[in-house]
Design a protein around this nucleic acid. Structure first.
Length: 940
RNA sequence: GCCCGAGUGGCGGAAUGGCAGACGCGACGGACUCAAAAUCCGUUGUCCGAAAGGGCAUGUGGGUUCGAGUCCCACCUCGGGCACCA
C-alpha cells in the first residue's frame, strides 16, 4: 500500500471476481431489495394479513426457530447454524410451491436485561429494544427470508397482553379427571350446583361465598399454593424444579437453592402428565428428546399397598412397582417428614427420632440426594403388619426415603433392592430371599454381597390364598400379586409421577405482571380481560432484594412490592368498588415462549391471540391422528425439558378450551448440534484468547508460552467465540451459510475450522466464474447446448439435491452442487441452456449470489418463487451400466453392459471377462448373484 | 448405576445390506508470476512393488449373509441425559 491508496476497482483486472468484497456488495443490494419489495411477506387466510387468492391452492409450511434471547453481545455462531438451516428449508419449500410462514421473534424478558439495568440504572426496556434492533441488523445480514411483519417481542405490551390473557384462561379452568381435559371453571360451578359433582369441602349449597371461592381455587389449573418451593436467596427469587440442577443449585447463577414453605403461583401441569407422555407418540421428535421428556415426567406404574398399624388403628400406605416382592418386605421406612412419624414413635425412641428429624431437616436437598452416601436412619419403635405374611415388621425413618415421591413411605425388601439391602445390613434387619438367584450365590442371604435384581423363580412366597412359588417372571409375579391385593382390600393399582406442579411466580421486575388482584381476605381475583394488558409499572428500582446466597431463612421481596401506588387500587369486580392489592410477582421467562409460535400466525390481531382460521390453516392437524403443530421446529437440546414441556402444556390447555385445533405445538422437532472450537489453556489452567494462539512446531503458543489445546462449545467462557458478522465481512453471508451447513449433519456437534471456510468460498467463486466473466462482468456462457452427458449429471444433481433438502441434509446437498459445478468447470463454463437450472438449485442455499446471477441471466423477478427444477426420469437412467464383478466378495473386474440387459446376459458377460476367468483359476463357479443395475458376485 | 447417541484417511465428513473414503480442508507436484499471495491443473487411505498388480483397512472380538461401515451378540472408548424415584 502506498500514498496513492488502494487500486481503484476499475483498474483491477479481476474487478468482477467473486471475492468477499464483491459478495458484500451484492448481498447488501439484495437485502435492500427484499425489504423494499416485501419479498418474504406471507399471506394469511384471514385477518389483517389475509390474501385469500395468494393462499388458495398452495400447501403450507410453518417453519420455526427457537427464538433468541436478545443479549447485548448479539448473535453468536450457534444462532446462524440453526437459522441458516431453517432458511434454506424455507426457501426450498417456497420453490416447491408452498406458502411458507417463516419469521423471527425475541424472548426478551429475563434476568440478564434486568441485571444490566440494575448496573446501569437504565430501564431494561431501553436496553432490550437496543439489543433487538442490533440483532435485527445481524439477522438481516445473514440473508434470512423472514416475514418481518410477523416478528414479535415477548416484552411488547401488545404481546404480553395475550400472555396474561392465556394465564386467565388457565386460571379460569379446571381439569376434569373423567374427561381428562381442561374445562371452564363455570362448568365446574354448574356441576356443583346441579349436584353432579361433589366439592372437596362439603355441600356446595351450604358453603359460604368465601368457602366456595376457596373450593374453586382447589380446582383451578393456576392456583396459589402454600407449598414447599425452591427459594434461591442469591437470586432473590424462587425457581421451578426444572431450574434446579442435580446438585441443588440454581440453573442460572449457580446459587444454593433451599426448600421453603411459601405462597406462590403454581400450574397444575401434573394433571396433564399422562397426555404429555402419551402424545409424544404422535410427534416426529428424536427418541433422545422423547426419552428426556418421559424421564422428567417419570410415570411409574405400580400399586399402593396398605400396611396395618394395630397400635394406632391406622395404616401406612406405600407405593411400589414390585408388589411381587411383598413376601420379602421385612421392615418399613418412612421419610423423616412423614405425618405419621409423631404418632408411631414410642416414648422410648422419641428422643432419637426427634434428633434424627432435626438433623435431616438441616440438610439441604443436595446433601440428601448424594448417591452412595452411607445409609442412616432410626427405629421408631412402631410396627406394621405385612399384609401377605401377617407378620409384624419394624418401622424406621431414614432420609433416603423422600417425602416428595410416592407416599413418602416404602416397604423395604432388602433381598431385592440395593438401598434396602445396605440399610438392612447396617442395622442388622432381616433379609429373606424370595427368589432363587440365577447366579450361583444361593439362597442364604447372610453370604450375599448385594441385593439380587432380575427374573428368577420365586421361593418363600406363599400364604393360604396366594402363591408365587414356581413363577419365574417378575412381570407375572407383579400381576398376580396386584390382583390379590385388590381382591383382599390391601391395595390398588396406582400410577405416580416424578413431575411436580410448575412453580409459576418469580420475585423480579422484568417479566409479565399477573392479571390478578387480592381482596381484603387475601383471595385472588382475575382481572377482566378488557383491562389487559396489566402494564409493567415504571420504576428505577429494578432489583429484587437478594440475600447472602446461603441465608436459607431470608424471604423474597419483589421489586413490585415497593410500588405502593401501583399495588393498591380501587376496583369494582361485581361486588361494588373495593380496595384490592395487585399481585406483585411476575411470570417466569418461560411464559412468553409458551405460545409465541401462535402469535406469529396472526401478529397484528387486536381481537384475539390468533384467529382460529389462521391457526387451523398454519397449525391444524394434517389428517387422521396428526397432532397439528409447526411443520419444523429447530433449536438446541438444552430446551428438551423446560421450554418444550411447558409450551406443550399450555398448548393442550388452549386445545381443551377450544382456542386451537392442534393438540401439540411442534410436530417435527430437530435439534441442531453445537459448534465446537479449539480452546487453549495456559499452564495455570486459564483459558487464553483462542484467536491469538499460534500453532508451530507441532505445539500451540500464546504470547510465546506453550498452551494446551482442547475442544469445547464455542463461547465466551472458553474464549474461543467467533462473530458471525466478521465472517460475513471477510467472505460474505453466502459463504458463511454454506460453510455452516457443509461442516456435517445438522444434528451433530462439530468443531469450527476457520481454514476450511475457503472451500465453500471457492465453490461460489467457481460457480460465479462459470457464468460471469471476472474481468468484464459480462455473461460468459457456453453457446452450445449441454451434452447428454452433462444433462445426465444435471438431472442426477436435481434429484439428489431435492432428496437431500427434503431431509435437511444440507451438507450432502452442497456436495452434489459442488460436484456439478466441478463438472461445468471442466467443460470451461456453464452451457447457456443449463444456467437457469443451476442458479435455481443454488438459490435456497446461497440466495444472494443466486439472485445476482439470476438477474444477470436476464430475469427481472426474484428467484425466490421460481419452481425448483424437476429431474427428467429419462435422464436419470443411463444407456449403459458399469457392473463391478466380484469373485468371492472381492472386486476383480468391471464390465459395461446395456442398461436393459437381462440377468443372464450380464452373467454371461461377467463370466467371459478375462480377469474374472483368471481369478476363478479355471474352476467352475458355485453360484452367481446378479443384482440388476448394481453388481455381480461370483462364488467360486 | 440406568437410559440415549457416536467411534470410518493427517482433519471435517460421505456411503437404500451391493465398487468404503463422495465433497471439502490440509499436504505434495505443476502452471501463471521477477517473486509471493490469490487463482488454475494434477496426485493424495495404508503397506509391498520400478510398474503391472497385490496385501491390509470403517473401535475390539464373535455371528448372520453370496456379500457387513451398515444387521445380531459381547466388550472397549468418547459425548449427552437422568440418578437413593421405591
Amino acid at each position: 500500500m502506498n500514498d496513492t491508496g488502494s487500486v481503484p476497482p476499475e483498474n483491477d483486472p479481476l474487478a468482477f471476481r467473486y471475492s468477499g468484497v464483491l459478495a458484500q456488495t451484492i448481498e447488501a443490494q439484495w437485502q435492500d431489495r427484499w425489504d423494499t419489495e416485501g419479498t418474504f411477506n406471507t399471506p394469511n387466510p384471514a385477518g389483517p394479513l389475509a390474501n385469500s387468492a395468494a393462499v388458495a391452492g398452495r400447501p403450507k409450511k410453518f417453519i420455526l426457530d427457537m427464538f433468541p434471547y436478545p443479549s447485548g453481545a448479539g448473535l453468536h455462531m450457534g444462532h446462524p447454524l440453526g437459522f441458516t438451516a431453517t432458511d434454506m428449508y424455507a426457501r426450498y419449500q417456497r420453490m416447491t410451491g408452498h406458502n411458507v410462514l417463516y419469521t423471527m421473534g425475541f424472548d426478551a424478558f429475563g434476568l440478564p436485561a434486568e441485571q444490566y439495568a440494575v448496573q446501569t440504572g437504565q430501564h431494561p426496556a431501553i436496553t432490550t429494544n437496543q439489543n433487538i434492533a442490533n440483532i435485527r441488523v445481524q439477522l438481516r445480514r445473514l440473508g434470512l427470508s423472514h416475514d418481518h411483519r410477523r416478528s414479535i417481542s415477548t416484552t411488547d405490551p401488545e404481546y404480553y397482553k395475550w400472555t396474561q390473557w392465556i394465564f386467565l384462561q388457565i386460571f379460569n379452568s379446571w381439569f376434569d379427571p373423567e374427561r381428562k381435559k381442561a374445562r371452564p371453571i363455570d362448568q365446574l360451578i354448574a356441576e356443583f350446583e346441579a349436584g353432579t359433582r361433589a366439592p372437596k369441602s362439603g355441600e356446595w349449597a351450604s358453603l359460604s361465598a368465601a368457602d366456595r371461592r376457596r373450593e374453586l381455587d382447589q380446582w383451578r389449573l393456576a392456583y396459589v399454593s402454600d407449598a414447599p418451593v425452591n427459594w434461591c436467596p442469591g437470586l432473590g427469587t424462587v425457581v421451578a424444579n426444572e431450574e434446579v440442577t442435580a446438585d441443588g443449585r440454581s440453573d442460572r447463577g449457580n446459587f444454593p437453592v433451599f426448600k421453603r414453605q411459601m405462597r406462590q403461583w403454581m400450574m397444575r401441569i401434573t394433571t396433564y402428565a399422562d397426555r404429555l407422555i402419551d402424545d409424544l407418540d404422535a410427534l416426529d421428535w428424536t427418541d433422545a428428546i422423547k426419552a428426556m421428556q418421559r424421564n422428567w415426567i417419570g410415570r411409574s406404574e405400580g400399586a399402593t399397598v396398605h400396611f396395618d398399624v394395630p397400635a394406632l388403628r391406622d395404616r401406612i400406605t406405600v407405593f411400589t412397582t414390585r408388589a411381587d416382592t411383598l413376601f420379602g418386605a421385612t421392615f418399613m421406612v418412612l421419610a423423616p417428614e412423614h405425618p405419621m412419624v409423631d404418632r408411631i414413635t414410642t416414648p422410648f425412641h422419641a428422643d432419637a427420632v426427634a434428633n434424627y428429624r432435626k438433623a435431616a431437616e438441616a440438610k439441604d436437598t443436595f446433601a440428601r440426594q448424594d448417591d452412595g452416601r452411607e445409609k442412616t436412619g432410626v427405629f421408631t419403635g412402631g410396627y406394621a403388619i405385612n399384609p401377605l405374611t401377617g407378620t409384624e415388621i419394624p418401622v424406621w425413618i431414614a432420609d433416603y426415603v423422600l417425602m416428595g415421591y410416592g407416599t413418602g413411605a416404602i416397604m423395604a425388601v432388602p433381598c431385592g433392592d440395593q438401598r434396602d439391602f445396605e440399610f438392612a445390613r447396617k442395622f442388622r434387619l432381616d433379609i429373606v430371599a424370595i427368589q432363587d438367584p440365577t447366579d450361583d450365590r444361593g439362597t442364604d442371604t447372610h453370604t450375599w454381597a448385594d441385593a439380587f435384581v432380575g427374573d428368577a423363580p420365586y421361593i418363600n412366597s406363599a400364604n393360604e390364598s396366594l402363591t408365587l412359588n414356581g413363577v419365574a417372571s417378575v412381570a407375572e409375579g407383579v400381576h398376580i400379586t396386584n390382583q390379590w391385593l385388590v381382591a383382599h382390600g390391601h391395595g390398588n393399582a396406582t400410577i405416580t409421577y416424578k413431575l411436580r406442579d410448575w412453580l409459576f411466580s418469580r420475585q423480579r421486575y422484568w417479566g409479565e405482571p399477573f392479571p390478578i388482584v387480592y381482596d381484603a381476605d387475601g383471595n385472588p381475583h382475575a382481572l377482566p380481560s378488557a383491562v389487559l394488558p396489566v402494564l409493567l409499572p415504571e420504576t428505577d428500582q429494578f432489583s429484587p432484594r437478594t440475600f447472602d446466597p446461603d441465608d436459607a431463612m431470608s424471604n423474597p421481596e419483589s421489586p413490585l412490592d415497593r410500588l405502593g401506588d401501583w399495588v393498591e387500587l380501587q376496583l369494582d369486580l361485581g361486588d361494588g368498588v373495593q380496595t384490592y392489592r395487585r399481585d406483585t410477582n411476575v411470570m417466569p421467562q418461560w411464559a412468553g415462549s409458551c405460545w409465541y409460535e401462535l402469535r406469529y400466525l396472526d401478529p397484528t390481531n387486536a381481537d384475539a391471540f390468533v384467529d382460529p382460521a389462521n391457526e387451523q390453516y398454519w397449525m391444524g392437524p394434517q389428517g387422521e391422528g396428526h397432532p397439528g403443530g409447526t411443520d419444523l421446529y429447530v433449536g438446541g437440546v438444552e430446551h428438551a425439558v423446560l421450554h418444550l414441556l411447558y409450551s406443550r402444556f399450555w398448548h393442550k390447555v388452549l386445545f381443551d378450551l377450544g382456542h386451537v385445533s392442534s393438540f401439540e405445538p411442534f410436530h417435527k422437532l430437530f435439534n441442531q448440534g453445537y459448534i465446537l472450537a479449539a480452546a487453549y489453556q495456559d499452564e495455570r489452567g486459564m483459558y487464553v484468547e483462542a484467536s491469538q494462539v499460534e500453532a508451530r512446531d507441532g505445539g500451540y503458543f500464546y504470547e510465546g508460552q506453550p498452551v494446551r489445546r482442547e475442544y469445547g462449545k464455542m463461547g465466551k467462557s472458553l474464549k474461543n467465540a467467533l462473530d458471525p458478522i466478521d465472517l460475513c465481512i471477510e467472505y460474505g453471508a453466502d459463504t458463511l451459510r454454506l460453510y455452516l451447513m457443509s461442516m456435517g449433519p445438522l444434528d451433530a456437534s462439530r468443531p469450527w475450522e476457520s481454514k476450511d471456510v475457503i472451500g465453500v468460498h471457492r465453490f461460489l467463486q467457481r460457480l460465479w466464474r462459470n457464468i460471469v466473466d471476472e474481468e468484464t462482468g459480462a455473461l460468459r456462457l457456453l453457446p452450445e447446448p449441454a451434452s447428454v452427458d452433462t444433462q445426465r449429471i444435471v438431472h442426477r444433481t436435481i434429484a439428489g439435491v431435492r432428496e437431500e433438502l427434503e431431509a435437511l441434509r444440507f451438507n450432502t446437498a452442497i456436495s452434489r452442487l459442488i460436484e456439478l459445478n466441478n463438472h461445468l468447470t471442466k467443460l470451461g463454463g456453464c452451457p447457456a441452456d443449463t444456467a437457469d437450472t443451476l442458479v435455481k438449485m443454488v438459490a435456497p442455499l446461497a440466495p444472494h449470489i443466486a439472485e445476482e446471477l439470476w438477474a444477470r441471466l436476464g430475469h427481472t423477478a426474484t428467484v425466490t418463487y421460481e419452481p425448483f427444477p424437476v429431474a427428467d426420469a429419462a435422464l436419470l437412467v443411463a444407456d449403459e451400466v458399469e457392473y463391478p464383478v466380484q469373485v468371492n466378495g472381492k472386486v476383480r473386474s468391471r464390465i459395461t453392459v446395456a442398461a436393459d440387459a437381462d440377468n443372464d446376459t450380464v452373467q454371461a458377460l461377467a463370466l467371459a471377462d478375462e480377469k474374472v476367468q483368471a481369478a476363478l483359476g479355471g474352476g467352475a463357479p458355485k453360484k452367481i448373484i446378479v443384482i440388476p443395475g448394481r453388481m455381480v458376485n461370483i462364488v467360486a
